[in-house]
Nucleic acid binder design. Structure first.
Lengths: 152, 152
DNA sequence: TATTGTTATACTCTATAACTATA
DNA sequence: TATAGTTATAGAGTATAACAATA
């Protein structure tokens, strides 16, 4: 990183670049989402709840789809429920499960906040031309994926 | 993220991709560096100390070049000094400053660990062809940079 | 016995405040 | 008064352990 005019101390490190780029986008997204009263995790949960084919999702199922822990999900749903964006109800078929459903307000919030997030992402990508931006997404998708287990 | 066969819940989010890619590379680098008894921060400090034109660097100067806090630097240097990889000595010209110098062991460690880190980075980039990989680095460099202040 | 929701706990990482010695 | 090094503290974020209810 260049600090007050010092030259780059090392050849650019991919790890640093990824970290800085991620942090910068995260800041921009957080700023864009703040106006809608949600953060990235909230938005992801709402997205999962509203994306599906109307199937009922429990807390662990939402957590599983987002790759976060079920213990983390509790506070997340608490916050969304306090804001009236989702509702919990016991599943009649398996009384251990909390079915989590978006409210109309939740669906509305999702649409507005998701638009804001996309706009922030678009602004973030503005330094790149369209082809470079999609090449970036393609490359990151390849790199972020699970490494296939090698036969050893 | 795809969890046990579920389809992608949302269109791929750039933020998630960046985070996952960064985390995956960080894990691979940490694993590669562990054999040399250092982590990424240690390596970065050694790199700054050994990169220069022989100029003496104090703790704050190293911290400034790496964009980390001077309070974080203390424990970092402590660890490196305990391992015999760097030495502290008071600057005779400004007795507030600790000049931090790499030992021969530190230089040796840097070279070996840096080679291991580069190899891990290379393996991480293996899913991409050479042109795509350099395009990725170029794109990330553009994106990670300071956003020029807009005239508003 | 295993799973779901929940709470409490611990642990990492980093940011802030404050102290000392020097300038 | 400002800076360098240091320590202690606090906060966010996340992982682990344990418990009650239910399967």
């Amino acid at each position: 990183m260049v600090i007050d005019g010092h030259p780059l101390p090392l050849e650019p490190r991919l790890g640093h670049l990824l970290k800085q780029a991620q942090a910068k986008l995260a800041r921009a997204s957080a700023e864009a989402l703040a106006a809608h009263g949600v953060d990235g995790h909230d938005l992801a949960v709402l997205g999962v709840l509203c994306a599906g084919s109307g199937e009922e999702l429990s807390q662990v199922e939402v957590a599983g789809r987002l790759g976060i822990d079920r213990t983390t999900m509790v506070a997340l749903i608490d916050g969304l429920e306090d804001q009236g964006l989702v509702r919990r109800r016991r599943s009649p078929r398996d009384r251990r499960k909390n079915i989590v459903e978006p409210t109309p307000e939740g669906r509305d919030c999702l649409h507005r906040a998701e638009r804001a997030r996309r706009a922030a992402e678009h602004r973030f990508l503005a330094p790149l031309d369209t082809e470079t931006a999609s090449a970036l997404v393609r490359a990151l998708t390849l790199l972020a994926g699970e490494t296939p287990a090698t036969a050893e």
